[in-house]
Amino acid sequence: MTDIVLRTDGISKSFGALTASNDISIDLRAGEIHAIIGPNGAGKSTLIAQICGSLQPDAGKVELMGRDVTGFSTDQRARAGLGRTFQISALAMEDTVLQNALLGALGASGRPWRFWAGVLGDTALRARAEEALARVGLDGVASKRCADLSHGQRRQLEVAVALTLRPCAFVMDEPMAGLGAAGSKEMTTFLDGLRQEAPILLVEHDMDAVFALADRISVLVYGEVIATGTVDQIRADARVREAYLGETT
């Protein structure tokens, strides 16, 4: 059991009469991609929000590397080693690609309280940012303003910023959202290699990507995990077919 990196233990969350998360216990093990799938409104975003800290669960706890982080704020969880990407790109649009990556490196360094020295002159930060950009193939556009990037490039930058943190677990909210077939394939290849570095909790609608990548899949329906298993197990699961896959295939 020592290889569990991220775990939720019976987390529940209700909004009035609506139960968005009902006693959800999932875990993410070293070296794996664990995909969370489910129809719209199943509570995937609520789950992510509780794991990342922007929502507090009503009950249950979240553990990162065996440490209870339920009481941690979002930025504390990031410092504890959680690297997330957003469904809708959350990037500083007026800034350059390099500046966005530097922001991640700066967060990882934990030393933003420097008012005089230029950030671009900080070679350690810069090396870290540039390395992350090179890995996603954005090193050629480092000085472009983020607002001038294509949608696909923004998705890549979103991942690059998470890379600069060198997290112990990634939480990715629909990294393929809005990507074309080619972009989606490229991202799939990239994430495939990334899992050795840190495991990925992947929320994704793109089923081809999920089936290609996931070591395990959890299916969320009406705030409950109705099944967790390998790709083959999930494909064969009657309840899953009824609740979810039946609608799409």
Binding site: C52, G53, S54, S73, T74, D75, Q76, A78, R79, R84, F86, A90, L91, A92, M93, E94, D95, Q99, N100, L102, L103, G104, L106, G107, A108, G110, R111, P112, W113, R114, F115, W116, A117, G118, V119, L120, D122, L125, V161, A162, T164, L165
Partner: peptide, 24 residues
């Protein structure tokens, strides 16, 4: 142009991003 300026400038544009990289 300082690290603080970079972070503050981003805090105005996307506060959620700052939290996500561990800055308050």
């Amino acid at each position: 142009k300082s690290p603080f300026g970079l972070a503050l400038n981003a805090a105005r544009q996307v506060p959620a991003r700052l939290d996500a990289v561990g800055l308050n």
